[in-house]
Amino acid sequence: MVLVSLPHLGRDSIETWGLTLGRTWKIGRGGKDDGIVIVLAPNDRQVRIEVGYGLEDKITDAVASHIIQAYMLPAARKGRYAEGLTATIDGLTKVIVQPNALSFLDLSLDTELTVGLIVLLGGFVVIFVVVIAYVSTFRTRAAYPPLQDERTTSVFDDNQGVYQTLQAGSRDIRRDSLADDWRSPSEERGFSGMGGSFGGGGATGKW
């Protein structure tokens, strides 16, 4: 599961971002394609949950949409993004572990339970946090800024089941859109999974 926060979507739709990042970063485990990309664009007031092929039966478009409506949007409207994202990840995790367990009407979250589940999942759920920041303002020919991983991210290595810490570097990218010249960060930053099969499943929410 990867969380991406974008200051601006630029020319591309949030669906395109989710899909392209999921595919280029190969989110998910090889052969299982159980990756999820959550894209948050606070300034464009949009959020998207992009679901890999392997999870489409558990996190259907309707489930993803319900999670966004119930957990993300109420918090996002108040500007409390972290709260919304935490609840969203909780919701997704619950559904993955126990399909049909999510009561959409129950907005109260059992945080302790969820933390327990995440620990239990161990090598199953990989949570990266990536912050992509613009340095310059967005213009017609957007100068995309250094792609920065601003924090040291703790992750579960999904193939070995061990807890490890990734120190990601930063680099410069200048481009107009998510076009073909988007080089895979995996080649340069050691930031990659083995999955990557995404077919556009998931849901988008706007507020």
Binding site: T60, D61, A62, S65, G199, G202, A203, T204
Partner: peptide, 9 residues
């Protein structure tokens, strides 16, 4: 939600 998802797919 399903329709939107399908159109996106």
């Amino acid at each position: 939600a399903q329709l939107e998802g399908t159109e996106n797919r």
